[in-house]
């Protein structure tokens, strides 16, 4: 798999899968704002900007279930596959590409 896609995104190693508890999350400080990295029950990993579209609640502190997380402030549910709020709420938080290879978690980081 190429490490570079169209010269705009780089895969950056951020941690081992085991650094995140199952159904848990870790945060990563970043220039554009804190990123939340989630490990779901099936060991799939997702990352979104750590800001609920509702009142900017830290999604990393929410309860992870399926491929979703419930915001700790007002219980909005965000679909981690898309970053979209689950109906009836409407909103979206930016999603960051992820991949897991040999137990290592990578984030796709914008070069621009």
């Amino acid at each position: 798999m190429p490490d570079r896609l169209n010269n705009v995104m780089t895969w950056v190693k951020v941690c081992h899968l085991t650094d995140i508890l199952p159904l848990g999350a870790r945060t990563i400080p970043a220039r554009k704002g804190e990123i939340a990295v989630f490990r779901c029950g099936d060991d799939s990993v997702f990352a979104v900007l750590n800001r609920c579209p509702h009142k900017q609640g830290p999604l990393s502190e929410g309860i992870v279930h399926g491929h979703r997380v419930a915001c700790p402030l007002h219980s909005w549910v965000i679909d981690l596959e898309t970053g979209e709020a689950v109906a009836p709420d409407i909103g979206c938080t930016p999603k960051i590409p992820t991949k897991v290879e040999d137990g290592v978690v990578f984030l796709g980081v914008d070069d621009a």
């Binding site: 650094d19 870790r26 945060t27 400080p29 970043a30």
Partner: peptide
């Protein structure tokens, strides 16, 4: 411990 520690910054 991991609850309170962020990962290394990007």
């Amino acid at each position: 411990a991991t609850e309170f520690k962020p990962l290394a910054a990007l």
